[in-house]
Amino acid sequence: MKEKRNIHTLSDDEFIKEVIDLGVMLEEVYNNKEFLILFMQIIHSDFRILNNYKYKEERNRI
């Protein structure tokens, strides 16, 4: 199993570099500061959800 990385806990600069390296954010987004501010809130939340999600298998009861 792949180790979880807490990308959402990085500083803003480290987080931006990481998501650009992962291909999640285009450098064009980074260069548009207004869009970057809006996009950062969304992508931070996405990574927080992905990192904290725990699958719980449930059996269907009939």
Rank of each mutant, 00 (worst) to 15 (best):
F39A: 13
L26G: 15
D12S: 05
S11W: 01
K33L: 03
N51C: 03
F15M: 00
E18F: 02
E57T: 07
I62E: 09
E3Q: 15
D12G: 01
H8V: 03
V19H: 01
I20W: 00
G23S: 02
Y53M: 07
Y55V: 09
F35P: 00
V29E: 09
L22M: 15
Y55R: 06
S45H: 13
N32A: 05
E3T: 13
I49G: 00
N52S: 12
Y55M: 05
N51F: 12
I42G: 02
V19L: 09
I62Y: 12
F39C: 08
Y53L: 11
N60A: 11
K17E: 13
H8S: 11
M25L: 15
R59F: 08
E18Y: 03
L36M: 10
V29I: 14
D46M: 13
I49D: 08
D13F: 04
D13Y: 07
I7C: 03
I62T: 04
D12A: 07
N60R: 11
E58V: 08
I49C: 06
E58S: 08
D46Q: 12
N52E: 14
M40A: 07
V24Q: 05
K17R: 14
F15L: 04
R61Y: 13
T9P: 02
E14W: 02
K33Y: 00
N52G: 14
L22C: 11
L38E: 13
S11Y: 03
M1K: 08
L50C: 08
R59L: 04
S45C: 05
N52R: 10
I16W: 00
E28V: 09
